[in-house]
Design a protein around this nucleic acid. Structure first.
Lengths: 112, 112
DNA sequence: GCAACATATACCGATGATCGGACTATCAGG
DNA sequence: CCTGATAGTCCGATCATCGGTATATGTTGC
């Protein structure tokens, strides 16, 4: 379970797949919604990250379908992947609250 | 004010300098504390990031002192830098709460 | 006397996630 | 016809970060 850092795209990919198995293109859209348009995943980033996450055991391929002549590959989050994501959430919140506190201390001091 | 992404080290550096001007080595220690030991900045990362942030106008050199024969260069956060950090905090919190929600939806569905 | 450690900054090559785009393919709508 | 949505694949480029080295001084401990 040795994860150094979850970058934003990777973090959001895991979050997108957390509720239910989802295919690549669906993840693309889900990440867009989850981040309220702040993050637009590149196809290259997505499929590379997907391969990486499967390799690390955070995701696994659930099933493949062909819908209207187009392949859909569904990815499912693993127990390890959920743990990584949970850890990442805690991490993010800790950083956010620490930074918020630091900003408040600066404002108090009347810093530029 | 076009900031694509704040990576964790950069984010924490800004947070460290937010309350008051601080010199490089002090930032190193502050980041360590702020992140509760989760993040250990490399010297290379720090001084490169510092130069970059000054170049971007998020920080500026406040003053230089010589203490016990050693140079201390103090960095001060700018108004733009505070804005970048504030923006980053919101961003982080939004991502964290979205991911938390997704995890809850997965748990509800009894996903592995 | 000397090793080890804290303080403080600087430089450099390697790594790897992400970016930015191109490519293939099908189907719907104007 | 052409655009846009859907769906996946591949590839070179970028650049923040990593990991380590170098330089210097002061302090602590054996």
């Amino acid at each position: 379970m040795l994860r150094d850092v979850l970058r934003e795209p990777t973090f959001l990919i895991l979050a997108a797949v957390a509720p239910a198995p989802l295919h690549g293109y669906g993840i693309l859209q889900s990440v867009d919604e989850l981040s309220e348009g702040r993050v637009r995943l590149r196809a290259g980033t997505l499929y590379a990250a997907l391969d990486r996450l499967v390799g690390e055991g955070a995701l696994r391929v659930d099933r493949e379908e062909v819908v209207e002549g187009r392949l859909r590959r569904y990815y499912r989050i693993t127990a390890a992947g959920r743990e990584v994501l949970r850890c990442g959430v805690d991490h993010l919140e800790a950083n956010a609250s620490a930074a918020r506190n630091q900003l408040a201390r600066g404002a108090e001091a009347g810093l530029a």
